[in-house]
């Protein structure tokens, strides 16, 4: 099977052999993609599902990649998948919060973490993805506008709404959560 792009290591190698150049590039992006998928999702398993769908699509569409900024392209694909999926979830907004795989690796208070997650889950799909691309992934506003194919003014208004709604939701959510047993 041939793979559209020629390059060192691509092409005629057998299954299970070393990754080709494109595959290596995708592998190098996995940590960033995993973080972004989790920042959009409601749970760890949700995040992993989104990540898998995204990787599948990036690889299936490799021949359509224009060769510039694979990271931004993969992030755009992830955002679109997230919006597609979320429409379905919107009919069942309550999803059990699962155990955090990463919880042990962070110093943050688990109550605070849950409070933040709950507040994030109240953001709209559009506002949440802009907030994460800017704050967690460090993209500039112009880059976000290009990635999401929206005017920069829309990026700014979504960012503004996300920040205000998040602050509001954090303020309202004063319910004391049960501390998770260690």
């Amino acid at each position: 099977m041939s793979h559209g792009r020629d390059g060192p290591g691509s092409g005629a190698e057998a299954k299970g052999s070393a990754p080709d150049e494109f595959e290596s590039d995708v592998l190098a992006l996995m940590p960033a993609l995993r973080r972004y998928s989790r920042s959009l999702a409601r749970s760890d398993s949700d995040g992993e599902d989104l990540l898998q769908d995204c990787v599948e699509r990036v690889l299936a569409r490799r021949s359509q990649w224009r060769g510039v900024n694979l990271r931004a392209w993969a992030f755009t694909i992830m955002t679109n998948l997230y919006r597609n999926r979320h429409r379905r979830q919107a009919q069942h907004p309550e999803v059990e919060l699962e155990e955090d795989l990463a919880a042990e690796e962070t110093s943050a208070d688990p109550i605070e973490r849950r409070r933040l997650e709950r507040a994030l889950n109240r953001l709209s799909v559009e506002n949440r993805s802009v907030l994460m691309l800017v704050v967690v992934e460090g993209y500039r506003y112009q880059d976000v506008a290009e990635m999401l194919a929206i005017p920069i003014g829309t990026v700014m208004s979504r960012l503004s709404r996300a920040r205000r709604q998040l602050a509001e939701a954090m303020k309202e959510d004063n319910v004391i959560a049960l501390r998770r047993p260690k």
Binding site: M30, R35, R38, V55, L116, L131
Partner: peptide, 24 residues
């Protein structure tokens, strides 16, 4: 808080390589 909350997810997983190569 957001950066700290999601920082721990920016990691590779043992299954990544298999995932990428299988789909590719």
């Amino acid at each position: 808080a957001l950066k700290q909350h999601f920082a721990a997810y920016a990691r590779s997983d043992a299954s990544d390589r298999q995932l990428v190569i299988a789909h590719s």
